[in-house]
């Protein structure tokens, strides 16, 4: 295998595995910047995956090859609606954020499989016929060398995710809305004193996390698993949560951490095809991403600091 071919294989599979983590970890960043801990990302991704597959199976005949992109929208919508449960529980009903997030995680796979059984009569769906697959980005793909590595036969959702990461960074750190969102996550009382609507801002943080988490789940379902069952989303949400903390509650950081996780996961998958890694026992490739994460975390990052009022309910004095 030529060096070019090897590099492009690693890069494209890295992007495929990173894309869902990028979307979801940025979603988590919005929620936690607003002060709502979101352990429920896993469940939100599960509902997004469920919605996108049902949508995809239902409309693939009419929408053709554009189906997965519309499936993404379906996942986003259902993810957003589902996240309202978390928002209502934590913001309005003052529930413990961890408890509410755990409820989301317990509820999603149960509800998803229950509905699949009601709809299709069995616990998992048939494979979808239109998935994301690999596409070339017109124009950019014709750049010599770089175009071939990064933009030809690449993952469309991953590039969308990278765009969303930059956009989110801009929103959180450079806009009025972002400043307000961060202020309710750091000191809700001060924000309230200045006339900001703490509840509304926290609701919007959680809902954005629902939207992006739903997209993340839809990407997993339509580019990796290609069907929906109880095992479509197993742990990706927790990985995304780790990427969010690793990225220090910053969208660009979350992007970097997600790409790192994606790279190590893809090495475990495509490693057998690469001459250098062929001789390494598969178990080392399997656990490498997780061991590396711990090492990097311990030696290079150390203390991580969450937004100050993250996980603290704001109870307005009557």
């Amino acid at each position: 295998m030529s060096l070019m071919a090897m590099l492009s294989l690693v890069i494209s599979s890295t992007l495929v595995y990173s894309a869902p983590l990028i979307f979801t970890s940025i979603g988590g960043t919005f929620s936690e910047r607003a002060g709502v801990v979101n352990v429920g990302l896993e469940g939100i991704m599960g509902m997004g995956a469920f919605a996108s597959i049902v949508f995809n199976l239902t409309f693939s005949n009419t929408l053709g090859s554009a189906t997965p992109w519309f499936g993404l929208l379906a996942g986003a919508l259902i993810g957003l609606i589902f996240s309202l449960l978390h928002a209502v529980a934590t913001v309005t009903l003052r529930a413990d954020h961890i408890i509410s997030g755990t409820v989301i995680n317990l509820m999603a796979p149960a509800l998803g499989v229950f509905l699949i059984k009601v709809l299709y009569g069995k616990g998992q769906t048939v494979p979808i016929s239109h998935d994301f697959g690999y596409a070339s980005i017109p124009g950019l793909a014709s750049i010599p060398v770089l175009g071939q590595l990064f933009f030809a036969k690449t993952s469309g959702p991953a590039w969308l995710a990278i765009f969303v990461a930059v956009l989110s960074w801009y929103i959180i750190f450079k806009t009025k809305f972002g400043l307000r969102l961060r202020s309710v996550g750091e000191n809700p009382q001060a924000a309230d004193t200045l006339g900001l609507n703490v509840s509304r801002l926290r609701y919007s943080g959680v809902m954005i996390s629902g939207l992006l988490g739903g997209v993340g789940g839809a990407v997993v379902a339509q580019s990796i698993s290609l069907n929906y069952s109880a095992s479509t989303i197993v742990g990706q949400g927790f990985m995304a949560m780790a990427a969010m903390i690793f990225g220090r509650w910053n969208p660009i950081g979350a992007l970097g951490a997600s790409l790192f996780f994606g790279l190590s996961q893809s090495l475990a998958v495509v490693g057998a095809q690469l001459p250098l890694l062929k001789t390494v026992p598969p178990i080392w490739l399997q656990i490498a991403p997780y061991v590396l994460t711990i090492i990097v975390l311990v030696f290079f990052f150390g203390k991580t600091r969450a937004p100050k009022a993250d996980g603290v309910n704001y109870i307005k004095a009557a």
Binding site: G235, F238, M239, M241, A242, I245, F246, Y290, V291, T293, I294, L297, V298, F299, F301, G302, K303, T304
Partner: peptide, 13 residues
């Protein structure tokens, strides 16, 4: 080292 136990336990799983 101040490493988040949430990340480390997820990875150790």
């Amino acid at each position: 080292f101040g490493a988040s136990e949430v990340i480390v336990t997820i990875m150790m799983n």
